[in-house]
Design a protein around this nucleic acid. Structure first.
Lengths: 186, 186
DNA sequence: CAGTTTTTTCAATATGTTCTGAAATCAGTG
DNA sequence: CACTGATTTCAGAACATATTGAAAAAACTG
C-alpha cells in the first residue's frame, strides 16, 4: 500500500514478466526470453544488458544469449541511445506480427515435415500393397495413415493461412475434419 | 521394395510414430505418448502393454506411465478383448475432440492464469498511482500492461470459443488486435 | 486363497536444457 | 593503437524431465 512508485513498478514487472515467461516457455521458448521481453516492453526507455541482468537476476552470459535469441526472432531490437557507451535494447511492440512470424517459421516447418513423413509412410504401404495385394492389416493401416496425412495437410493450410493473412477460420474445412474424426472405424 | 507386408508396416509405423512424437513433444507432451498413440491408431486390433513396449523400444515402466497419461487425457482407452489375460489398449480416434479437450484443459487454464496475474499487476500500478499521482514511468507501464491484459483476454476468448464450438475466427476482434499492435508508442 | 502373471510405482539413472562464471573477443576512446 | 569497458562464448554446474530396472502391488486363474 504505502510503497514507492519504484517498488510498485518492480512488483508489477515481476508479476507480468513471470507470467509471460511461463507462457513463452509453454510455447517452446526459454522463459527468460519472455521475462526479458516483458521487462523491456514495460520500460519507457531502452535498457542496457547489465540493467536487464540485474533486474532479472540472470548472469551477464544468460542475458547475452537471451538477447541474441530475441534479436534473431525480431522480438527485440537495438535502440540508438545518444551518448551511450552500452548497447540498449527495446522490445518489439507489434505482438501480432511477432506471433505470425514465429508461427510461420516454426509451426509451419514442423507441420510441413509431418506432411512429408506421413506421405512417405503412405507410399511405403502403397508399394507393399502393390506387391502383396489384399493384405488386410496393411489396408487398414493405409486407410488410417491417409487420414493422418489429410489432417496434417489441413493443419498446414490453417497455419499457413494464419501466418499469411492473420486470420484463422476452420469453416471451409470442417466437413473434412468431422469426417476424419468420425471414423474409419475400428 | 521386396519386403514383407509386415516389414513395410513396421517401417510405416516407425515413420508415422516418430513424426507424431515430435509434434506432441513440441506441444508439451512426452514424445512417447505420441508414439504409442500412433502405434495403437495404426493397429487394427488393440494391443497389450508388452507388445507396445517391444515395438516402441520402451521399458515396461515407461509404457505403463505413458499409457496412464494417455488414459487420463482420454487419448486412449482399454478395450475388452474376449479371453485375454493382459489388458489391451486402443487409440481414441476422434482427433478433433481430443484436441479440443486438451486445449480446454491446458491452454485455457494457462491463459486464464495470465489474465489473473496481469490484472493483479494492473491493480498494483493503479494503487500506486492513486497514492503518487502523475508518476510518468508508472503511467507508461500501466498503459502497456493494460495492453497485455487486453491481449490475454482476447486470447482467452479465442481459446474458449475454439474449445467450445471447435471454430476459431479472429474477425470479430481484429480491430482490437490491430489496435494493440499499432502502438502505445515508445 | 495360493500361485502366477501383469501392472504400477519409484529411486536411481540417463538425457536434455538453461545458466553461470570466467576467459576471450570486440568496440569504442583518448 | 593501447587501454578500458562491454559483449560474447563456452565448458562445466545446476536444473528439469524422461526412462530404466527392479521391487511392490494388483489382478487373474485354478
Amino acid at each position: 500500500m504505502n510503497s514507492t512508485p519504484e517498488e510498485a513498478r518492480q512488483r508489477a514487472v515481476g508479476l507480468a514478466a513471470d507470467t509471460m515467461g511461463e507462457i513463452v516457455a509453454f510455447w517452446g521458448f526459454k522463459a527468460s526470453m519472455g521475462r526479458i521481453w516483458t521487462l523491456l516492453y514495460l520500460s519507457s526507455d531502452p535498457l542496457p544488458a547489465d540493467v536487464i541482468a540485474q533486474r532479472t537476476q540472470l548472469s551477464a552470459g544468460a542475458v547475452s544469449m537471451a538477447l541474441h535469441d530475441l534479436l534473431q526472432w525480431g522480438i527485440a531490437d537495438r535502440a540508438m541511445v545518444p551518448g551511450a557507451r552500452k548497447r540498449h535494447y527495446r522490445a518489439a511492440t507489434d505482438v501480432w506480427a511477432i506471433v505470425r512470424r514465429i508461427i510461420r517459421q516454426r509451426e509451419l516447418r514442423l507441420v510441413g515435415r509431418a506432411v512429408e513423413r506421413f506421405s512417405e509412410a503412405v507410399r511405403v504401404l502403397e508399394d507393399s500393397l502393390a506387391n502383396h495385394p489384399g493384405d488386410p492389416s496393411t489396408q487398414f493401416m493405409l486407410q488410417r495413415l491417409r487420414g493422418l496425412l489429410q489432417l496434417a495437410r489441413i493443419g498446414y493450410k490453417l497455419v499457413e493461412g494464419f501466418a499469411d493473412v492473420g486470420t484463422f477460420t476452420l469453416d471451409p474445412i470442417r466437413g473434412a475434419l468431422s469426417y476424419f474424426g468420425r471414423e474409419q472405424h475400428a
